[in-house]
Nucleic acid binder design. Structure first.
Length: 230
DNA sequence: AACTTATCCAACCGCCGCTAC
DNA sequence: AGTAGCGGCGGTTGGATAAGT
């Protein structure tokens, strides 16, 4: 292993400590539990191994499918991905990805690239709620005037978003870039895909209560988009 | 059976953002 | 404003084990 393995006795002490004092205050846990481990080790051991309801064993097909889908949306944000998989830990997901899916998908992608020309047009649109003032202005640190939840514009069409009172869409144009389109389909701006939602959150002056809101919004929108394109 | 190589996964490390002072 | 301490995260390491020769 990558370090000193935990003994059954250490596990027992940690478990007892968490049961008695609860999670959190990890800096106190080594002392309270009488363990010669750092706070991080204790936290990790609890989260990845001792916590109740942790699912062991192989990933199901559904879970694998979910991981692939979520990784496309979120990248290497393992904790977010794991949060969508009950009983699985970020470490589990990360390990599974690195051991199984990473190689498999890389090989698959390489194969696909050999076989087909990349056609940007086939990349489905991925609507995003974003304020037009944010587009191309990140470096200036300008704040969006508002951000709205999406509304469905029709049964077969993708959801659209009100941006400053005008219907606009944000679409994946190519790797790592979003394009902001107006109703006529004209590109009115571009936004790097690494546009971090922490920044949006900061810029929106607390309109979003947490990082989760953004990630959940994105996730739900993409799931919506996926289901409507099937 | 002995050795080598590949794979798995628990544990550690360093960094980041947040908060309190 | 600067800083220390904290929780949390993703990347990496390396020992255990399985598979191959």
């Amino acid at each position: 292993m990558g370090g000193v393995a935990w003994t059954a006795e250490e596990d027992h002490l940690l478990k007892k400590c968490i049961q008695q004092y609860g999670e959190g205050k990890w800096h106190r846990v080594p002392h309270l539990a009488g363990l010669n481990r750092c706070r991080k080790s204790c936290r990790l051991r609890w989260l990845n191994y001792l916590r109740p309801n942790i699912k062991r064993g192989n990933f199901t097909d559904e879970e694998v499918e979910m991981i692939v889908k979520l990784h496309k949306l979120l990248g290497n944000r393992w904790s977010l991905i794991a949060a969508r998989l009950p009983g699985r830990t970020a470490n589990d997901v990360k390990n599974y990805w690195n051991c199984h899916l990473s190689k498999k998908l890389n090989a698959q992608e390489a194969e696909e690239e050999r076989e087909i020309d990349i056609n940007l047009d086939v990349i489905k649109t991925q609507p995003r709620s974003i304020d037009s003032s944010s587009v191309n202005k990140r470096s200036q640190g300008e704040s969006p005037s508002f951000l709205q939840v999406p509304h469905e514009s029709g049964i077969s069409s993708s959801p659209t978003f009100d941006v400053d009172g005008h219907s606009q869409m944000l679409a994946i144009e190519e790797d790592n870039m979003y394009s902001c389109l107006d109703q006529q389909g004209n590109i009115v701006g571009v936004l790097p895909m690494d546009f971090q939602f922490e920044e949006v959150k900061a810029m929106s002056n607390g309109q979003s209560s947490s990082q989760w809101d953004w990630d959940d919004l994105l996730f739900d929108l993409d799931m919506y988009n996926d289901s409507s394109s099937c």
